[in-house]
Structure formats: C-alpha cells, structure tokens
Computed example of a mutant assay.
Amino acid sequence: MSGNDKFEGFIPDMMKEMTKILGIEFSINVVKDARYGLCNNGNCTGMIGEILRGEAELAIADLTVAPKRVLTVDFTQPFMTGGVTVLVNNPDPNLNTLEDLLEHGYSFLCVGGGSTENFLKSSRVSIHEKIANSLETITNFNEGFERVLKSGEKIAVLAELSTAKYHASEHCSLKIIGEPLNSVGYGIAMAKGIAVRTNEGVFEVRTLLDHAILQMRYDSTLELLQSKWWPKKC
C-alpha cells in the first residue's frame, strides 16, 4: 500500500469523513521524532514543532489541548475526551488501585517530552507526585507497551485512555488500573490564525474544522467510529 492507504484507525477514518464534509484532500505523514510536542526557549519538538516550522498544516492525534500549547498553536474543539491511564499486564487480582501498584513496587513508564510527563511533574496531587518519583521516560508508547506485555517486570505504562482501551481489548491479559488521572480533550492543532477562502467567504481553518467535528458529532459519525475501533473483546 502507498500514501494514505498505509494507515488505518480512528484518526484516518475521521479524516476521510471530514473530507466529505469540507471537500478537501489530505496527505498523512508520521511525525519525524515520534513526539506530540513541547516548546522550550523557542525550540519546539514533535507535531507542535512541525506545525510551527511549516512542515505540516495540521496535527491530528490524541493530542491534548494543554495550557502551554494553546499559547503556541490554535486548536479545534475536542473531537474526543480522555485522560491519562495506567496499563499493566497480568496484575495480581488484589491490585486494583494506583496505591496498590506503588505499594507492590511498580515503576511507571511514560513517553518523554509530552503533556503526560509535564502533567505528572507539575501536579500537586499526592498520588501523581508519587508516580512522578518512580517515572522512567521512554521514546514512544510502543516501547513501553512491549516491555509491559513481554518483560515480566513490575512496570506499568502510562497512556491516553483511547490507546489503553484499544490495547486492553486486543490483549486480554492487560488491565487498566484505577480511574484516569485527569480529564482532557483531544483537538486538531494548526498554526495560529490561518484562514482560507471558500465559495461562502473567508474562514479561519479552525472554524471549518469545528464545523466538521460538530457535524460528525450530531450525525453520530464519531460515536460509530469509536464503536468500530474500540470494540469490547475481553
């Protein structure tokens, strides 16, 4: 397969539906450094950096609408909500809470340089601080997922709820422990203030994308796509 056909999942399907509503074409590219993106002293990584450098026009993923990011790029309204969750493999039946994991000596894996790491290290909630103190950063989620699934170590991987639910439905030995650590929205990011001319006038790109998201919410397209990609198998 080539082009967009190389990709499958909720996001590509959602983008296809958006093209029907907006009459646009798109080309999917994977972010080069495998990061969502943060900015430090003007240097921005991940998808956020590629947007700012003009290497991409939109960033579409389970990209958290975070306080620092909205000062750098524009976001649409959330197309999905979620939060940071904890995923473990073959847990003891008595391990049901994050406190249980900490008491039994579990350490935690988290993708470095993203909003999840920043959230944990800046949170003043006691359980979040304890997790942050036993945190090991990894390059990407798949690295942590493979370790949790195959290594037999006392480790848990932190993941967005959508990612955790998908893998827990594919591998019945995996379990999401406790409730999400926070509540966030996932939005589409773009450079600030960009606009396009249409047959109906000049619109900010964010407004057009918000229109498409609302349309997909009203006609249940987003709900149907979630049911397709997060089936309950276990």
Results as ranks from 00 to 15, higher is better:
Met1Cys: 11
Asn4Arg: 05
Asp5Trp: 10
Lys6Arg: 15
Phe7His: 11
Gly9Phe: 00
Gly9Cys: 01
Asp13Val: 06
Met14Trp: 06
Met14Val: 07
Met15Ala: 11
Lys16Ile: 08
Thr19Trp: 05
Lys20Ser: 13
Ile21Tyr: 15
Ile21Val: 15
Ile21Phe: 15
Phe26Thr: 09
Lys32Ala: 12
Lys32Ser: 13
Asp33Leu: 09
Ala34Glu: 15
Ala34Met: 15
Asn40Tyr: 10
Asn41Trp: 03
Gly42Asn: 00
Asn43Cys: 02
Thr45Trp: 05
Ile48Glu: 13
Glu50Val: 06
Ile51Glu: 10
Arg53Leu: 13
Ala56Met: 06
Ala56Cys: 07
Glu57Val: 11
Ala61Trp: 02
Thr64Glu: 11
Val65Trp: 00
Pro67Cys: 00
Arg69Phe: 08
Val70Ser: 06
Thr72Leu: 15
Val73Gly: 06
Phe75Val: 07
Pro78Gly: 03
Phe79Tyr: 08
Phe79Lys: 02
Met80Lys: 12
Thr81Gln: 07
Thr81Cys: 02
Val84Tyr: 07
Val86Gln: 03
Leu87His: 06
Val88Gly: 04
Asn89His: 15
Pro93Ala: 03
Pro93Trp: 00
Asn94Asp: 07
Thr97Tyr: 03
Leu98Gln: 07
Glu103Leu: 14
His104Leu: 01
Ser107Gln: 08
Cys110Arg: 06
Cys110Val: 12
Val111Pro: 05
Val111Trp: 00
Gly114Glu: 11
Gly114Gln: 10
Leu120Glu: 09
Ser122Gln: 07
Ser122His: 05
Ser123Asn: 01
Ser123Lys: 00
Val125Cys: 00
Val125Ser: 02
Val125Lys: 06
Val125Met: 01
His128Asp: 09
Glu129Val: 01
Asn133His: 00
Ser134Ile: 01
Leu135Trp: 07
Leu135Cys: 09
Glu136Pro: 00
Ile138Asn: 03
Glu143Pro: 00
Arg147Trp: 07
Ser151Phe: 05
Gly152Met: 05
Gly152Thr: 05
Glu153His: 08
Glu153Ala: 13
Lys154Ser: 11
Ile155Val: 15
Leu158Gln: 12
Ala159Cys: 14
Ser162Asn: 13
Thr163His: 12
Lys165Trp: 11
Lys165Val: 14
Tyr166Val: 10
Ser169Glu: 11
Glu170Leu: 14
Glu170Ala: 14
Gly178Trp: 00
Ser183His: 01
Ile188Arg: 04
Met190Ile: 10
Lys192Glu: 09
Arg197Tyr: 10
Asn199His: 09
Asn199Thr: 14
Asn199Glu: 13
Val202Cys: 10
Phe203Trp: 13
Glu204Lys: 15
Val205Gly: 08
Arg206Tyr: 09
Thr207Asn: 13
Asp210His: 11
Asp210Leu: 09
His211Ser: 15
Arg217Leu: 09
Arg217Ile: 10
Arg217Trp: 06
Tyr218Gly: 01
Leu222Ser: 07
Leu222Pro: 07
Glu223Tyr: 10
Leu224Ser: 03
Gln226Lys: 14
Lys228Val: 02
Lys228Ile: 03
Trp229Ser: 02
Cys234Pro: 06
